[in-house]
Write a protein that binds this DNA or RNA. Structure first.
Lengths: 217, 217
DNA sequence: GAATTTATCACCCTTTCGTGCTATTTACCT
DNA sequence: AGGTAAATAGCACGAAAGGGTGATAAATTC
């Protein structure tokens, strides 16, 4: 993806010890080029364009601007820059926010130095290093399944009922659903009644919500 | 998540050398318990319930039933079993299919034995080991779907209207919303009309759908 | 201080929904 | 062949939702 120049790295990390430790680590590693380190991301617009980092190590909790907002801005300024988030906790919400905002990797601060180095190299060649715990959360989000997958309720809808439900999820009125399926409004009503019974709801909105949250629809 | 019993493992892998190699590896590793190995997944319904594996190593390309279908069935039979996919190539489509079908990890066959072992332990305690390349693909999928972050449409709802919208998203009727906010049904109606105008919809269901899909609500 | 926005309430009228009950045809099960 | 479930359709009634119009008071903005 990139040539074999040194990988230019910028650090945003409010903890001084950590920041200096990582700076030292980067400077001591061949193949990496330390480009700068800052305790906060407030002036990042002025820093990134000049420093032209290949990889940014971004602390997620910083005074002033959060690492998540900072990640967004970095990607906006230099899309080719890879952002590696560093955090103490694997906060579910923050992980997803960071990912949506363009972060390419997600590591815990307690990760050993050698692994941080390889994560940097990894993210630079197009990988997305992350802890397997975080990976699981991401996957789970994909699968949109309940925690330990033990009990997914089975509402036992007939194929037709499922079709009708899908139309409902499109926001259609009875009349529209009837037209869409070439059946009478009364039939639609009939199906919907059965759907309500099976889903244990009693309004279109509730049915749609339940369908969206629990089913594939 | 689990107790500290041995981790029971079943292998599905059509390549004999690989299968036997992994069998040997598992048997030689303390903490793991080899429970069975098969060259294909065609009789998996008969095997899984009896063997009760904690982790299944699943080749993705097998004669007869594909590893992806097999993963689905394993999860259906024993949701608590973790499925670790093994593959030669990082085929984008297959990765996603496997994930959607309940796979909890995704490794390349060329992964060194020690890492396979740690991946097994990892997946058993709730992690999702995967190569960083695969992780990147998963993240990219995440990132491309929502236009998100910087440009989220602003419908300019008043605080009150937002409140009402939230109630609507809870599936409440006008009456319930009125009670919840100590206002009359007519007022609720009024707010909802304004919400519809701003969101450009004309039914509760549509409003709720739009709210769910585009807003935070 | 005038204009705009926001929140509130009211009345009327039409359409859509939710529900109870019934009935016919098809298809599948054993 | 008889039983069961699904899909279809109808009727009827009351409740809920949606559209139109208008009005008042408070807060905010200009």
């Amino acid at each position: 993806m990139q040539n074999d120049q040194k990988i230019r790295i910028v650090i945003y990390e409010d903890n001084r010890d950590l920041r200096e430790g990582m700076t030292f680590l980067l400077q001591a590693t061949p193949g990496l080029e330390f480009a700068g380190a800052f305790p906060d991301a407030t002036n990042l617009e002025m820093q990134i364009p000049g420093l032209k980092p290949d990889v940014v190590l971004m602390d997620i909790d910083m005074p002033g601007r959060s690492g998540i907002d900072a990640a967004t801005i970095v990607k906006a300024l230099r899309p080719e820059t890879q952002v590696l988030m560093l955090t103490v906790f694997e906060d579910e919400e923050k992980v997803f926010q960071a990912i949506r905002n363009g972060a390419s990797g997600y590591l815990l601060k307690r990760t050993p130095p050698t692994e941080i180095i390889s994560a940097i190299q990894d993210v630079h060649i197009g990988g997305s290093p992350m802890t397997s715990t975080i990976a699981r959360r991401v996957l789970r989000f994909f699968q949109q399944q309940p925690p330990s997958g033990s009990s997914r309720p089975d509402y036992d809808l007939s194929p037709r009922e499922l079709e009708i439900l899908k139309s409902m999820v499109k926001g259609y009125s009875y009349k529209l659903i009837a037209e869409e399926h070439f059946i009478s409004v009364d039939t639609v009503r009939s199906h919907i009644r059965h759907i309500y019974e099976k889903l244990q709801v009693n309004s279109k909105t509730e049915a749609v919500l339940k369908a969206l949250r629990e089913k594939i629809v």
